[in-house]
Design a protein around this nucleic acid. Structure first.
Lengths: 202, 202
DNA sequence: TTTGCCATGTAACTAGTTACATGATTTG
DNA sequence: CAAATCATGTAACTAGTTACATGGCAAA
């Protein structure tokens, strides 16, 4: 049985940010955890209803009473308990499916030009994220220097920064390997590879 | 519309390894690209039938003729064309969903003990993968020093090694941040964080 | 007044997982 | 001969995506 994670993101968002509407939860997700989580409205709104039916969250009374007015929800004590229990459970190994690595692996037919283009697109995308991380970091730092959530948020942010830096480094390295291939075929690639690996400790 | 990727993995496997059966494709996947791709039989066998019906792969005549005997398939010219076209298309941005980061972010209630346990489990898992990468690398190096696929395979392998190393480094760093939090609260965390970031170039 | 954002929601679809069933062949 | 592995397949399910529909409100 696959465990639905959407509900825990909702609970977590409400726990960290206080009462939020569906729309606000979605913006929170895309702004603060967007680089490692996404959630669509088609999943969000039905789940909010379910959580409310299970008394894990409670709708707040709102002023404007027209249809489709904003409806905020608050996490309940039992919701908090459920969230904590989930957090304490070890994370299931997520089935990673990195399409771009498949394309790379199958690139022989298409050749180096296509491969280079793909790699450079990745590096470019990562450079774009750099700014986003800097922004998120700034927001964290001046928003809550006393926040008890700060350590956790920073740890998560650092993961994003690490991944981004790693990807850029990997692209650089890969371009070198491709250059070696172009210059001297598989043999030259092997040399270049050994040099790369020897630079690393252990 | 979501694009089914399973078919391209199958085509790629047949392209790289020659004729394979469903079972063999699955072992190939789990052994050589298992760290970034998974595929289940429930998806594999129906897709093989579809690909054969579309003449993108062709079943080889096999000797033993009992039911449920091994059936190998070969990629066809049109299959090869389809694969190449897919490879040349830029990879769609995959919706990453890293559950363990969510758990980390929502860890305040559960506390440092739980968080440490999670982090150490991640590091432990990565250390285990180290051996697998070494094996994959060795296989690559002595299997095909002249293989035209070598560059691509190495580039992909390096990604795995990079990720693994990055994760271990991140865990170490995170444990330091947690220690700082324990010793001096958010203020100490901020100091530790700034030290970490300053070490990095740019 | 039109563009864009705030806001909620549903219907249709499908990719992928899980669990199960069947049986041959090899190995200890 | 028992256990493990090789081998193919199906049924049932569900999490998640995509596309669409509706409408209020604010700013340009």
């Amino acid at each position: 049985m696959r465990e639905a994670t959407t509900r825990y993101v909702i609970l977590g968002a409400l726990e960290m940010e206080g009462p939020l509407s569906g729309y606000e939860i979605r913006t929170w997700i895309s702004q603060s955890v967007g680089y490692f989580w996404t959630e669509s409205f088609g999943q969000l709104y039905p789940e909010l209803k379910r959580l409310a039916a299970e008394k894990l969250i409670s709708p707040l009374p709102e002023k404007q009473a027209h249809a489709r007015a904003r409806q905020r929800y608050e996490i309940s004590p039992s919701g908090r308990r459920l969230l904590a229990a989930w957090v304490e459970q070890p994370a299931r190994p997520q089935p990673v499916r990195a399409e771009f690595l498949l394309k790379l692996l199958f690139s022989r037919q298409s050749g180096l030009v296509v491969t280079r283009r793909h790699l450079e697109a990745i590096a470019e995308a990562e450079r774009g994220k750099g700014a986003a991380f800097a922004g998120a970091r700034a927001a964290l730092l001046d928003e809550g220097p006393d926040s008890p959530d700060l350590v956790y948020a920073l740890v998560v942010l650092r993961y994003g920064q690490h991944i981004s830096a790693m990807r850029r480094a990997w692209v650089e390295e890969s371009l070198q390997l491709l250059a070696a291939h172009e210059a001297g075929g598989p043999a030259a690639v092997l040399n270049a590879f050994h040099e790369l690996v020897e630079e690393e400790p252990r």
